[in-house]
Design a protein around this nucleic acid. Sequence first.
DNA 1: CACGCCTCCTGTGCGC
DNA 2: TGCGCACAGGAGGCGT
Length: 270
Amino acid sequence: MPELPEVESVRRQLDPGLSGRTVTDAWYDPIPAMPRQFLDVERVVDRKIHSVGRRGKFLISPLDEGLEVVMHLGMTGSFSFETNDPYVPYVRARLWLDDDRVLAFRDVRRFGRMAVVDAGRYEAIPTLAMLGPEPLSDDFDPDEFARVLARTKSPIKPYLLSQRPVAGVGNIYADEALWLARIHPTSRRVGRVRAHALHAAIRTVLEDSIDREGTTFRDYVMVNGDSGRNADFLIAYGQEGRPCPRCTTSLRKIVLGGRGTTYCPRCQRA
DNA sequence: CACGCCTCCTGTGCGC
DNA sequence: TGCGCACAGGAGGCGT
């Protein structure tokens, strides 16, 4: 569930707590079944964290010595600074800091990831290596977006989820943006005009959600434990059977690329 | 080589 | 009440 607005909200709380801190020790839960969940994490020890940045859904922190730590929340990941609470289940990794605080990475489903890499070397993280432009930056250009969409034969929604045409859009905001731009999720031909509408819609739904600190259904919380406030504002995602706010047609749910997909069959034309 | 499908993981909620 | 199963959806990998 963490998509760009949720990761950005986490980043904003993580940055002041981690910037300038040196990691004094690191631990992670070694899972034979998922050997790639943690990659070279021990290299973070004795390194100073300069800042906490973000690309798409990835948190990226520059360290000393030309290193970076790359973190991904997966489906259920969350960060917190440990307190004296008796027992917090599903903590998969901990970083001890030089101000005596301990950063805990909690992740029920183990889809999250943490890796230390040479800065900018993302061969071990293919989605990051192929990541599309940052949607809220000038790198996300409407005309270029239209050209990229024109080149693919994939249905638009699964293509958005690939992170290649634009970074950070997941299942929730794909449904929201497609609804706003009036594009059918299975559409294989998105022309220039609709590409421009989708470009604007993606920015709108992401910015609005960031303003509300993300969408919480169950697992997503920020570093301070608070939930995001965007769930009450969703129009399409999870709203199957409710009337479309534009045309009152009942919203329909289908499975597309293995993902639940909700849209308005009347105003989102194929 | 782009694309579509399966898999990883675990808790939840539903139908029977 | 209990059981079994579909479902949730991030990204990685593999077959076509």
